[in-house]
Simulated scan of single mutants.
Amino acid sequence: MSAHSERLLRELYASLGQRKRPEDVAQLIRDLFDATPGSLDRRTRTALEKATRTSLRSLWHGYTSMLEDFARPVGAQRQLARAAALFATVTALPEAAGDDPAQVEAVIRAAGEEIRKEYGHSDFLSDRLNREQRAEAGLGEVSKRQYNKRFRLLRRMEAKLARILVEQHKREITVIGKSGLASRLPYEEFTADAGTAAFIAYLTARANLRSEFTVSGQQRPYDEVADALFRRLDADTATWGAAATLAG
């Protein structure tokens, strides 16, 4: 597989958990098949050409006002940066760490050990150490003000972590409600067959369309392009288990 095809497959895989316009996913699929000359039958090529007429690449302004992702929780990047400034045991972390609950929790636990704070015990009245307790814990050189500042930060970080977990769960439920379990597919299974990957990515994009308030009913995800992509699947190489993760 060429580097170009690999990049396109990664973009298609990323789209499973996003809300990209079906036209733009169709453009990625068309590019993917164009990278392998002769891989498209006339019916599928015609359907893709029709769909991509309104892709962002085809439009002169190349812009959409619609968000291309489901709402994501605000991460703990700011709190992690503050922790790195206050705690000697905490090092600066990459931006993505603020969206990873496991890394945020690890920082809270490590920083808590530095001031002898137990994870989950954040009551400002009953869980703080007094002067004698700080001295016994080897924190005699830490002033009450500095200790309280660190305690408050860890308390806020624990609350922030709880909010992130709730919002991530809500987002996951929303995505699954729109397009089934497609967003949970492992990358290796998704890319095992390019044709199946194209079908899954396009139908997922269609399923993730925003609901419309209309008397004629909602658009059905399975359209002309989805049908063409499905019909060109090879019965011997298609990964039917992966395709079955889509909502019915």
Score class of each variant (00 low, 15 high):
residue 199 F to T: 05
residue 190 F to Y: 13
residue 233 L to M: 13
residue 200 I to P: 04
residue 170 K to E: 09
residue 174 T to S: 04
residue 220 R to K: 05
residue 184 R to P: 00
residue 189 E to G: 06
residue 205 A to S: 10
residue 221 P to L: 03
residue 207 A to V: 04
residue 189 E to W: 05
residue 168 Q to R: 05
residue 229 L to G: 13
residue 226 A to C: 09
residue 182 A to D: 06
residue 204 T to Q: 09
residue 166 V to E: 09
residue 214 T to E: 02
residue 187 Y to Q: 15
residue 184 R to F: 07
residue 232 R to E: 11
residue 170 K to T: 00
residue 197 A to Y: 15
residue 214 T to K: 14
residue 233 L to G: 13
residue 176 I to F: 12
residue 227 D to P: 01
residue 174 T to Y: 01
residue 201 A to F: 05
residue 215 V to C: 05
residue 198 A to L: 08
residue 232 R to K: 13
residue 231 R to D: 15
residue 227 D to A: 15
residue 208 N to C: 13
residue 213 F to H: 06
residue 187 Y to W: 07
residue 186 P to C: 03
residue 228 A to S: 14
residue 184 R to D: 04
residue 170 K to Q: 12
residue 179 S to F: 07
residue 214 T to I: 08
residue 216 S to D: 09
residue 174 T to H: 00
residue 210 R to C: 04
residue 212 E to T: 14
residue 176 I to Q: 06
residue 180 G to R: 08
residue 217 G to S: 06
residue 203 L to N: 05
residue 172 E to W: 01
residue 209 L to K: 11
residue 231 R to G: 08
residue 229 L to S: 06
residue 232 R to C: 07
residue 220 R to F: 12
residue 219 Q to G: 11
residue 168 Q to A: 00
residue 211 S to A: 13
residue 202 Y to I: 11
residue 212 E to G: 09
residue 227 D to C: 12
residue 189 E to H: 06
residue 168 Q to T: 01
residue 222 Y to F: 11
residue 213 F to P: 00
residue 195 G to V: 05
residue 200 I to N: 13
residue 167 E to G: 00
residue 196 T to P: 06
residue 176 I to M: 03
